[in-house]
Design a protein around this nucleic acid. Structure first.
Length: 120
DNA sequence: TATTTGACCAAGA
DNA sequence: ATCTTGGCCAAAT
């Protein structure tokens, strides 16, 4: 677990069900420009939301989408059945998706506040 | 130490 | 609405 990864997971866990954030928003909130690294960190997520059972620890990496509202990747892949599972998870939480894009994406985005940043 | 690799991004055409 | 392109920087190799 790298330092940035640890902070990223802590922050991401504050995003509630039915809302989303972006790779860039996470990077910005953490004071780094390494938004590409955030993707790497999601890929290495040891607490998969689907597979990990401990509610307190699991990291909702399916709630992270690209800055233009497109879905982004999941489990190391960017297309195919894996992405359909990410979409299914989001839909189950109430996020509307059409043509691989979050509808009303700006309104669905969760904005990190001072309290969350302070916890890092 | 040096190089390569991305679940990315913003701006242009 | 797509599509390139150049840039970005932490981590992995």
């Amino acid at each position: 677990m790298t330092p940035l990864a640890e902070k990223t997971y802590i922050l991401l866990k504050t995003v509630p069900k039915g809302r989303i954030t972006t790779y860039k928003a996470l990077a910005d909130a953490l004071g780094t420009k390494a938004y590409r690294a955030i993707g790497q960190i999601m890929r290495n997520n040891p607490y998969s939301f689907e597979e990990y059972l401990d509610l307190k620890q699991r990291v909702p990496c399916h709630r992270v989408v690209a800055s233009d509202g497109t879905i982004g990747g999941f489990k190391g892949e960017k297309t195919g059945e894996t992405i359909r599972r990410k979409i299914a998870l989001l839909r189950k939480e109430g996020v509307i998706i059409r043509n691989n894009r979050v509808v009303d994406f700006k309104k669905m985005e969760y904005v990190f506040d001072k309290v969350h940043k302070r916890a890092l």
